[in-house]
Design a protein around this nucleic acid. Structure first.
Lengths: 219, 219
DNA sequence: CACCTCTTGTTGCCTAGGCAACCGAAATTT
DNA sequence: AAATTTCGGTTGCCTAGGCAACAAGAGGTG
């Protein structure tokens, strides 16, 4: 917590909260931060935790490995995003994905009980926290719809274009950097890496895009 | 509303509410029900509404059509599920999907303003409604993760198996009925209908499943 | 019952993209 | 800066599955 109050004041969970209220909320929810190094496992299907978290810095991936051993990246989260919200459900069905650090990162974890079992200990800010969590969930929903929209295309070029357009919109410029390496992008789009490279080259030849490593430009 | 209080008392939105409280909530949120016939459009990308809804009876599809004209079914919703929750976001980004009646159905709509602009008119039950909406959103999240998990498989057989297993779990039996026709299932799994039929036949030959129309049995 | 429509299965054909293998370039380590 | 590892592009091969077209059932209707 120490010196990083600017970060906390800018995340949606504490939207509209004073510094004092943030401190109080963290205390109420038994918040603590933890740092992870790139590639470290944050939590995995095997061992669901009784906590949920907010990404403070860095990037994390939610992914899953299927029977054939190929990985699928559900989504990529960064500062302000909620992770592990499935823990907040009454009917605990276990986590469906692995969470790993895509870059070095820091996460603020909270115990869930004061959210889901309010009858025990209640803190004055709980209702406002719930409202902000509500907003975070809506964002996550939106994100998941987008993801489904992207992978719903039957052909590779449209998948790629759809993804790149969304990224371009997000960064509000034609020239942008994506948070994925080539292999990661392939796992995100559920395609083969070599097929992805091949199609990207074709798209460049066709004058649709230019790119170099993970920076792209839509033409 | 009239005579269908049993339905209302069983949906999660009104979990823990007395009959009187349900009535009050509906008034506060300006709730009204509307019936749709099979195949009717409930709302579409083109015209986002300022309302969200809860399915009371029947089944609805969230779907989207891509540039090439093929339809993709995001998910299928039934009694108690929330629809149009994207309307509850501050940053209105428009609906990303079309909503259509998969069967004759009835939906309870609410105006969103008393949820997202609480400073105007406030009603005593708002906080509890938010809490229940929160739960509904968590369920929807879970549902979307499942959907992503299903379509993440690169090969058709695994997609089908994953879907059928989830359905089997839901209905808690080996012998179950799915809410999709063959073509709808193909659009849900993002595959070609004939390829789906072919693979289902092969799976039956291989002794993995038996089926007839939309009832299946896992072996 | 005859007619029509809607749904599902089947099959031939063909191509998009999966898989494997290799190579050079970039990044990281020592 | 040499050594090593990681990453991206390329290419040949091959098959899963998309597409189109047809046929057979099922169900609905007059």
């Amino acid at each position: 917590m120490q010196n990083s109050f600017e970060i906390l004041q800018n995340i949606d969970l504490f939207n509209g909260f004073s510094e004092e209220e943030i401190r109080e909320s963290i205390h109420c929810l038994k918040g603590y931060t933890k740092k992870y190094q790139k590639r470290e496992i944050i939590f995995s299907k095997a061992a669901p935790l009784p906590t949920f978290g907010i990404v403070l810095t860095g990037t994390i991936f939610l992914s899953s490995e299927d029977i054939t051993g190929s990985t699928f990246i559900f989504t990529e989260l960064s500062a302000g995003d909620i992770v592990g919200e499935t823990a907040l459900q009454f009917t605990q069905t276990g986590v469906e994905y692995d969470v790993t650090a895509a870059t070095d990162c820091e996460i603020l974890f909270f115990h869930k009980e004061n959210i889901v079992q309010p009858n025990k200990v209640i803190c004055a800010l709980r209702a406002r926290i719930i409202e902000n969590l509500f907003t975070l969930l809506l964002q996550k929903n939106q994100e998941l719809y987008h993801k489904l929209d992207i992978v719903s295309h039957k052909n590779l070029r449209n998948k790629i274009l759809h993804y790149l357009h969304l990224q371009s919109q997000k960064s509000d410029t034609q020239h942008f950097t994506i948070p994925f390496s080539r292999e990661e992008l392939a796992n995100y789009l559920i395609v083969d890496r070599s097929a992805l490279s091949r199609e990207l080259s074709r798209m460049q030849d066709d004058g649709l895009i230019t790119f170099s490593r993970n920076t792209f430009q839509l033409l």
